[in-house]
């Protein structure tokens, strides 16, 4: 993930927001076919970038499981 880290550090604010939107929609939106998937977040850059979105993603997945 070193390439990701380098590129993230070079992003300006609008680019970071666009990346936040990408992460938000791919991880937290769209159709859920299976209701019990588990995706770990191994890339620390994602957490640094937008912790709130990732927490909501995990919550959304948990809610789908209930």
């Amino acid at each position: 993930m070193s390439a990701d880290r380098n590129s993230l550090e070079e992003l300006d604010e609008p680019e970071k927001l666009v990346l936040s939107d990408l992460i938000n929609r791919v991880l937290d939106k769209g159709v859920m076919i299976k209701t019990h998937i588990t995706i770990s977040v191994a890339d620390i850059d994602l957490i640094e970038l937008d912790l709130n979105l990732l927490i909501s993603s995990v919550d959304a997945m948990r809610n789908k499981r209930l």
């Binding site: 993930m1 990701d4 993230l8 990346l19 990408l22 992460i23 929609r25 791919v26 991880l27 588990t38 995706i39 770990s40 977040v41 191994a42 890339d43 850059d45 994602l46």
Partner: peptide, 13 residues
Amino acid sequence: PRSASIDDVRAHD
């Protein structure tokens, strides 16, 4: 891809 790397997220989209 059980881990949400940025590369995989980008590839999906």
